[in-house]
Simulated scan of single mutants.
Amino acid sequence: MIELKDISKIYKSKNGEITAVKNVNLSINKGEIFGIIGYSGAGKSTMIRLLNGLEKPSNGTVTVNGKQISSISGNELRNARQKISMIFQHFNLLWSRTVAENIAFPLEIAGVSKTERSKRVKELIDLVGLSGRENAYPSQLSGGQKQRVGIARALANNPEVLLCDEATSALDPETTDSILELLLDINKRLGLTIVLITHEMHVIRKICNRVAVMEAGQVVEQGDVLRVFQNPQAEITKNFVMQVSGTKESKESIEQILANYPTGKIVKLTFIGNKTEQPIISQLIKEFGVEVNIVHGNISQTTGGPYGTLIVQIDGDSTKVKQALELLDQQEVQTEVIDHA
Rank of each mutant, 00 (worst) to 15 (best):
Y137D: 08
D126P: 00
E160P: 09
R117E: 14
L163P: 05
T168L: 06
L180M: 15
T168V: 12
R117P: 11
D185M: 13
T175L: 02
L184G: 07
C164M: 07
V128G: 13
T175G: 04
I151D: 01
A154M: 05
K119V: 02
S139G: 11
L155D: 04
E134V: 06
L141W: 04
P138Y: 11
L141D: 03
T175A: 09
T115P: 03
E123T: 10
V149C: 01
S139F: 13
S178N: 15
V121N: 06
L184A: 14
I186Q: 12
L155E: 01
K122R: 13
G132V: 02
A152D: 06
E116V: 05
D177A: 15
E134C: 01
A156F: 04
V128N: 12
L162Y: 13
S169Y: 08
L183R: 00
R133F: 14
E174Q: 15
K146N: 11
E116Q: 14
A167M: 01
L141I: 00
D177M: 09
G143D: 09
L162T: 12
T176W: 00
A167E: 03
T176Q: 07
K146S: 02
G143S: 09
D177C: 03
L127C: 02
E166W: 09
K119S: 12
Q147N: 10
Q147I: 02
S118M: 09
D172R: 04
C164P: 11
E123G: 12
V149N: 08
R133W: 12
L163H: 11
Y137M: 11
I125G: 07
Y137A: 08
N157Q: 08
G144N: 11
P173A: 03
T175I: 12
L127G: 03
A170F: 04
G144V: 02
T175Y: 08
T175P: 03
V128P: 13
A156H: 06
S118D: 13
G143P: 07
E174K: 14
N157P: 02
E134D: 13
Y137G: 08
D126F: 03
G132D: 02
N157K: 14
G143H: 08
A152R: 07
L162S: 12
L155Y: 01
D165F: 05
E116N: 14
R117G: 08
A152S: 05
